[in-house]
Each structure stands twice: as C-alpha cells, then as structure tokens.
Computed example of a mutant assay.
Amino acid sequence: MYSYDEVEASTITHRASAEYKAFRVAVGEKRLLEQPSDLRFWRPTNIGFLTRKVHMNSFKNQSHGKNYIVIDELTPASGEYKHIFELLSKISLKAEKTQEVLSFWVLQREDGDKTAFLVFTSYVERDYWALFNAQTEIQDHWATLYDLSKDWSRTTWMGPGLGFLGR
C-alpha cells in the first residue's frame, strides 16, 4: 500500500505500480479515454473559500441534497494569467458576501506553471447560481475571463454526488 502524502508518491511511485500499469493497459484496450489523462495536481490559491456554514432552514424552497456545483477550468492566453487571477479575486469577494454561494474556491496547477485555473463553486441550488451570475458585474467578469482564456470548459451537476464537503 502506498502513502500519498506527497506529490511524488502519486506522480512517480503510484504510476510505477503494477496496478496502475494494468489499469492503463485496460483503459487503452477498451478506449475509455479519448485522450491521455492529465494527472497533475491542483493546489489552492489564496482566492476564495471551500465551505460556508449555512442554516438550510433559511432557504425555504431548498430540497435537501440539491446543491448545484459548477467547475470551470480556464487556460489563460499568453500573458493573461495575472489579469485572470485578479478577475477571479473580484468574483470571489462578491461570492463571499452572498450566503447562497456555498463555495468559491480557485485552484491552479501544482507545478505553478500558471497554465490553468480550476474554479470550484457550489450553490444552495441552481436558481441561486443563476441569480448570482445574472448580476451585471459578475456577467462582465466571466465574459472577460473567457475572452482572456485560450481554452475553457464548464462542468455542472446537482445533488451531493460522491463524497462530501464539511461535516
């Protein structure tokens, strides 16, 4: 059994294991991945927050477990890393003041190569995501973020999914 307390344990030790090699062969033979996986680690920046203590009773229409989660991945165009960082900071400040935003957490690649940001956000429910992002200032920031990115993607889901945030 391996310990994954350090990045090297996953990037070197784990990938050298017989189990990982067998997994990669099976994935390749069955063509489960359209492109090679990217197993580099994401590390938190100093932008945002992961969890917020919320009393769900204050949200009358909330059905338990209907949280709306959004993951945005942004790859800055050349020279735009700092500008994207600043815009994400501005959105985060607004999110911190909005109780319905349960998480707004910005990560970057472990190696610090400044090639991508991952923005993890969660909301009480989808309607609150829509309300927060309908604010003109927030819309403008996201539009600029997309313009400054050479590539971006968004993934969303509802409900608790796998795992949990907070206890």
Rank of each mutant, 00 (worst) to 15 (best):
Y2L: 09
Y2N: 10
S3K: 12
Y4T: 14
D5Q: 02
D5T: 07
E6S: 13
E6T: 14
V7D: 13
A9S: 15
A9V: 00
A9W: 01
S10N: 15
R15S: 00
S17V: 06
S17A: 03
A18R: 10
E19P: 01
K21E: 10
F23C: 04
F23A: 08
R24E: 08
R24P: 00
V25R: 13
V27S: 05
V27I: 09
G28K: 11
E29V: 03
E29K: 13
K30T: 12
K30C: 03
E34D: 03
E34C: 01
Q35A: 12
P36Y: 09
P36W: 01
S37L: 13
D38H: 09
D38A: 11
R40G: 14
F41Q: 05
W42E: 05
R43E: 07
R43N: 06
T45K: 05
T45C: 06
N46V: 03
I47L: 06
F49S: 04
L50K: 15
V54Y: 07
H55R: 12
M56K: 13
M56P: 12
N57W: 02
N57K: 06
S58M: 09
S58D: 12
K60G: 03
K60M: 02
S63M: 04
H64K: 15
N67Y: 11
Y68A: 14
V70N: 14
E73I: 15
L74N: 09
L74C: 09
T75M: 03
T75C: 08
A77T: 03
A77M: 11
S78R: 10
G79L: 01
G79I: 02
K82C: 06
K82V: 08
H83E: 14
I84V: 07
I84E: 00
E86G: 04
L88W: 01
S89N: 10
L93D: 13
A95Q: 09
K97P: 00
E100P: 01
V101N: 07
S103C: 13
S103T: 15
F104A: 15
Q108K: 09
R109E: 06
D111A: 11
D113A: 09
L118D: 06
V119C: 08
V119Y: 02
F120L: 12
T121D: 11
Y123F: 15
R126V: 03
W129I: 01
W129R: 15
A130N: 12
L131A: 15
L131C: 10
N133Q: 11
N133W: 01
N133D: 08
N133I: 02
A134V: 04
Q135F: 03
E137V: 14
E137G: 10
I138D: 02
I138Y: 02
Q139V: 05
H141L: 05
T144L: 12
Y146T: 03
Y146C: 07
D147T: 11
L148M: 02
D151W: 01
W152Q: 05
W152D: 04
S153L: 04
R154A: 07
T155E: 02
M158F: 06
P160G: 11
G161I: 01
G161C: 07
G163F: 06
G166M: 07
G166W: 09
G166R: 15
R167M: 12
